[in-house]
Structure formats: structure tokens, C-alpha cells
Design a protein around this nucleic acid. Structure first.
Length: 583
RNA sequence: CGGGAUGUAGCUCAGCUUGGUAGAGCACCUGCUUUGGGAGCAGGGGGUCGCAGGUUCAAAUCCUGUCAUCCCGACCA
């Protein structure tokens, strides 16, 4: 491709709407443009990257036995009503009606439609297992789209669904996908971790998320330095540890005046107690009913854990005004002692407390010498708190590390949730009807593109891994008006193309500086510069985008050397980033 | 959905407080010079000031409504 013909409108200045690196750089370098909030056009360079990622995904899915098909974007309401998710999905679903008033939606995901397909076409155990996948636009009307491609309303996703006869078959499919996903992200040149994860609203009972490690990531992951343990903080189990040594003998419950002290910090400094002795009482609405969660003052509550323990379909922090209305106490003074009918859910650490401090359920008062078991009895004691770095690994006990991650893929065991709801059954070898056992496995293609930029960029622009770069090489003649330089560059261009290298010739009549700056911004992995000096001495200047080093290499045999270097880079995508900080 | 902010040229923004008929830099077009890290000079084109009402002799500017976008929070296969 000639740069003079390439449609890559670059921006010298950063668009005001872009906050994070990937959004900023993809806009500036001319890969994407915004059409509406959370909806983007992919320009030629951006679309090439998407194709590269899709290509890698296809190869790995096919290698694992997957078969590609294409499901509709517009889906009829019926199948969603059958699974019960037409109601459950709520506002996040884009809904529409046809001219006859029949309800449809833009598919936010495809479990229903593919299960309906398999229900109709698969009847016998002989047709199983089956791995079907598609790469498609998906639609979710996010309350708040943000971060460019990382959280859009229209996005490109690969998802594969596995259909097996039984649990053992599902486990096998799941393992295949785990391996395939690891291959995909390794080949994309990304530093990632597979972490144990919550299954969320999609249902099912076992899941891993694939996280690209980057500071812009919305997820927090914990991983062990010594063993292979890694988990999303949402589900990482805490090990209970005793409260600090204090008074061993329970003292008499007492009420103290704490005017205006609402927060843990305020109460603790006012009363001169360690936050570890405080009982933090947080009120939630679980399916409309008020519940109280108790954690130590120095801990953070984990809502995902609470939701599971409470067994609520919907759980959200209770509105402070509603709490005051229901309990007659401002939230800062609510405590477990004498809280009436509100069910108490206590973290594992709470029963270890001796002579703790808690709200007195009376404005401007707290209780001291609160003793769990004596002064209140929780409905349930369970792991409710957030684990933090340096706590012991649940597998081996070594201190955990934490990192931020961008979720680019997730694999689930669904079991029979959808096959039962939609009646996807098969006859086994004894003629008995049984539900198909399902799994689902997603990769955010467009999100992976953004994640790659988050992980691989510098102050000048993007640094694409060779495997997903829009083009592998750019040739820059320093001055195209110099016939010798121009002809030399044209020759190299023709030779590289003959070798099958994906190359851009920057044949524009621009100053060399402009071409260098744009090449850095766009992030071509390899740059070959032809100048007056290199022509005279029979060399070209060779520079990798991720390196600061530039060296003159002989013009003789250049095309083959480039081809070999590109192949080497494709073989070991992460190898070129050894210099990058990582884990 | 709650809180905050912003909509003026393709991009970044000034002008708004104190109403008087629209500006800068970059980008674009033409010419000359320049040519290995976003060049210089000269000339030129481009905006119903988000939209709709209202106040006024007069509105980018004041008032009301509305739409859009961004940030924080809530939410999130």
C-alpha cells in the first residue's frame, strides 16, 4: 500500500473526548472514528487489525474443533422470553419492533438463538459433541459507554458454544477452549493471565476470565508469585485471620456519645480505637428487602460474595434516605445490636472480635465492648470481604500480588441452564432423553485491539505486536523528490511485496520528520528508511518500533532478511517485548 | 439513573462576566523557499456559535426548554 493512497486521517491534537491511551491513540493515528457514544467506525488500518485478530482467533478455534457459522443480529423476542432473559436483561438490551409490531432485539449475546438452532437440529448423542462459533457485532445499551473501544455499545465478539452429552464432555470442551484462548492471546503478543472468575448473570457454575494486564483495566486480579493461582478479586477467597490482640475478657456493653462521627475513620480517631476493632454495618437491598452486611472497619465488602450468600437476584447498596426512613437512624450510626428484623450477614472475621465498636442504632451514639454472639447473632457467617495484595495465597500460602486487567475473554461452563429452559434435548444410546450440556466462550475482538494498545504504546504512539499490526513494515524515503531515493524505495517495496510482506511505502512528498512522527504514531513494527547516505553506501536504516536502536543493514538480500525477521517475530510474539515491564 | 462539566471552523480552544453582527493555532487550497524527527514566508477558502422558544432596537453572550458529548458514581454475559 502507498501512503499517498492510504485513508488514515491522523490528528495532530488529541480529541477532547479521549482519556485513556488506547482511545486517544486509535483516534489520533486514524484507526477509528466515533459515530455516536460507544459506537465506532473502523477505518482501513483499524479494520486490518480487527481482521488480524479475527484470523488468529479463527485458526485457534478451528484447530480446537470449532466450526464457524453466522447467527442473526436481529433476534426474535420469543427465544428470549423462553429463557426468561427478555425481562431479566432490562434496559441494557436494544429492543425494536418490525412493521407489524412484533418485538425483536439486537443480540447482546447469542445463547438463546444458538440453543434454539441446536434444539431443532440435534436429536441424537451421535451428533455430539459440537463446537459452533461466530464472529459478530453485539449490542448492549450500556448505561455509560466509555474508554473508547473498551466499553462500547456496539462491539465485535467471537463466541463459541459447546454442546456435549455430559459433564465429562463439557470438561473436555472447556479444557480445549482454555488452551485455545491461551494460544490466541499469546499469538496476539499480549501479556495476560487466566483468572478464576464469577459467572455473573449469564449463569453457570465455573468460569475463567482472560485478562490483559494493563493499568487502564477495570478489573482487579490477584495472583500468586509461587504457584499458578490467579483469580478475579470478586471471587478470591479470604482466609480468616484473628483480630488484633486486645482485651481477652469481654467487657460490659456500653453506649458512648459520638456526635457527627459517621465514617470508620471519624469514629476510630474520636474514640481512639483501631479500625480492626470496628464493625462496619453496610445496608443493602436484596430483591427489595433490607439486609445488613458486617465487615471489620479496615476491610472492604465484596458485593459479589454478598450477593451469593444472600442468594439475591438483585443486590444494590441501600439508599441512605430509605435506610433512615426504615430504621429511624442515619446510616453512619447503624449497627448489628438491636437492629430488629434486618437479617445480619457477618464476615468470617467478625466472630473473632472481642469488645468491638459498632453503631448504636441511635443518632450520634456508638456501642463499645460489642461482642458477637453475646450482643447479636448473625443469620449467617461467611466470606464477605475483599482480599488485598500481600494476603496469603489460598493454594500455597505465599503472599498474593495484585494487578489491573482488561477482560478480553471469558469461558463458562453453562451446564443445562439454557438447554433445559429452551428444551434442547437429545436421545442417549439407551434411547433416553437428556438435556444437552453447554459451555460458552467469548473473546472481545474489538476490545482486544484496544487492550493491545493499552499494553503496547509509548509517548509517541502505538507499538503493534507484529502478529496484529495493520502492516508489518513501512518504507520511508527521506526525500521522494530525490530520484535515486525514490527509485530505491520503490524497488524495496516491490521486493518486499514479492516476499509476501505487508508493507506501506510512504511515497508522500512530505518532510522526513512528518513521516517518522506518523510512522511512530501508527506503530508499524519495522521501519526501513532510505536516505541520501544509505543510497550512496548501499544500505538502508533498519529500526524496530519498540527499540531506540537504528542500524544500517546491507541493501543486498534485504527482502529476505525482512521476511525472516517478520517470521521470527510471528513465532515468538511476546519475545520482542522482553524489555517491557511485566510479570 | 444520581452528581459535575462542556457544546463556537475538520482538530484544540479564546470570545460569554459587562449584549453591538465571530477570532487564534493547527489542518485545508495556491505560490515560492525548505527537505533524516509534525518547516518558513505570502496569499486564500471555510462557522445558521448544538437545536427550539423567549427577553431586547440588537443575542455566541441574558432567560427557559431540549438534544448531544465527556467525567465521577451506581450498573455491567
Amino acid at each position: 500500500m502507498r501512503a499517498s493512497e492510504l485513508f488514515t486521517p491522523t490528528l495532530r491534537e488529541t480529541p477532547a473526548e479521549a482519556e485513556i491511551a488506547s482511545h486517544r491513540l486509535l483516534l489520533r493515528a486514524g484507526f477509528i472514528r466515533k459515530a455516536a457514544a460507544g459506537i465506532y467506525t473502523f477505518l482501513p488500518l483499524g479494520w486490518r487489525v480487527i481482521h488480524k485478530i479475527e484470523g488468529i482467533v479463527r485458526e485457534e478455534m478451528d484447530r480446537a474443533g470449532g466450526q464457524e457459522l453466522l447467527l442473526p443480529i436481529i433476534q426474535p423476542a420469543e427465544v428470549w422470553q423462553e429463557s426468561g432473559r427478555w425481562e431479566l436483561y432490562g434496559e441494557e438490551m436494544f429492543r425494536l419492533k418490525d412493521r407489524h409490531g412484533r418485538p425483536f432485539c439486537l443480540g447482546p449475546t447469542h445463547e438463546e438463538i444458538i440453543t434454539a438452532l441446536v434444539r431443532a437440529e440435534v436429536n441424537s448423542y451421535k451428533q455430539l459433541p459440537l463446537l459452533l462459533y461466530q464472529i459478530q457485532n453485539k449490542y448492549r445499551d450500556e448505561r455509560r459507554p466509555r474508554f473508547g473501544l473498551l466499553r462500547g455499545r456496539e462491539f465485535i465478539m467471537k463466541d463459541l458454544y459447546s454442546f456435549d452429552r455430559d459433564e465429562a464432555g463439557l470438561q473436555e470442551s472447556y479444557n480445549k477452549m482454555y488452551v485455545a484462548y491461551s494460544n490466541v492471546f499469546r499469538r496476539c503478543g499480549l501479556k495476560f493471565r487466566a483468572v478464576e472468575a464469577d459467572t455473573g448473570a449469564i449463569g453457570g457454575n465455573f468460569s475463567h476470565e482472560f485478562m490483559v494486564l494493563a493499568d487502564a483495566g477495570e478489573a482487579l486480579v490477584l495472583f500468586c508469585r509461587c504457584c499458578d493461582y490467579a483469580a478475579n478479586v470478586e471471587i478470591a477467597p479470604a482466609s480468616p485471620r484473628p483480630a488484633p490482640a486486645g482485651d481477652d475478657q469481654p467487657l460490659e456493653l456500653g453506649k458512648v456519645h459520638t456526635p457527627g462521627r459517621r465514617t470508620v475513620e471519624e469514629v476510630c480517631s474520636y474514640l481512639g480505637v483501631d479500625p480492626r476493632r470496628l464493625i462496619k454495618t453496610i445496608l443493602y437491598e436484596a430483591d427489595g428487602q433490607l439486609v445488613a452486611a458486617l465487615v471489620r472497619g479496615d476491610r472492604e465488602l465484596n458485593e459479589v460474595k454478598l450477593q451469593k450468600v444472600v442468594e439475591a437476584a438483585r443486590l444494590n447498596l441501600a439508599d441512605p434516605d430509605r435506610v433512615e426512613e426504615a430504621l429511624g437512624v442515619p446510616v453512619g450510626f447503624v449497627g448489628p445490636v438491636g437492629l430488629g428484623s434486618v437479617p445480619l450477614y457477618a464476615d468470617l472475621e467478625i466472630p473473632y472480635l472481642v469488645n468491638g465498636v459498632a453503631g448504636a442504632n441511635e443518632k450520634d451514639y456508638h456501642y463499645v465492648n460489642v461482642n458477637p454472639g453475646r450482643d447479636f447473632v448473625p443469620l449467617k457467617v461467611a466470606d464477605l470481604r475483599q482480599v488485598v495484595a500481600e494476603e496469603p495465597c489460598p493454594q500455597c500460602g505465599a503472599p498474593l500480588e495484585e494487578a489491573r486487567g482488561i477482560e478480553v475473554g471469558q469461558i463458562f461452563k453453562l451446564g443445562t441452564k439454557y438447554s433445559l429452559a429452551l428444551g434442547a434435548l437429545y436421545k442417549d444410546d439407551r434411547g433416553e432423553e437428556r438435556p444437552i450440556v453447554m459451555g460458552c466462550y467469548g473473546i472481545g475482538i474489538s476490545r482486544t485491539m484496544a487492550a493491545a494498545v493499552e499494553q503496547h504504546h509509548d509517548e509517541h504512539g502505538i507499538i503493534w505486536p507484529v502478529s496484529i499490526a495493520p502492516y508489518q513494515v513501512v518504507i520511508i524515503p527521506a526525500a521522494v523528490r530525490d530520484t535515486a531515493q525514490r527509485e530505491e524505495a520503490e524497488k524495496i517495496y516491490a521486493q518486499l511485496r514479492a516476499e509476501g510482506v505487508e508493507v506501506v511505502l510512504d511515497d508522500r512528498d512530505e518532510r522526513a520528520g512528518v513521516k517518522f512522527v506518523e510512522a511512530d504514531l501508527i506503530g508499524y513494527p519495522l521501519r526501513l528508511t532510505v536516505g541520501k547516505k544509505t543510497v550512496a553506501q548501499g544500505t538502508v536504516d533498519w529500526k524496530w518500533r519498540w527499540s531506540t536502536e537504528e542500524r544500517a543493514v546491507p541493501r543486498e538480500g534485504l527482502a529476505r532478511r525482512v521476511k525472516e525477521a517478520i517470521n521470527a517475530a510471528l513465532q515468538e510474539p511476546g519475545g520482542f517485548y522482553r524489555g517491557f515491564p511485566g510479570i
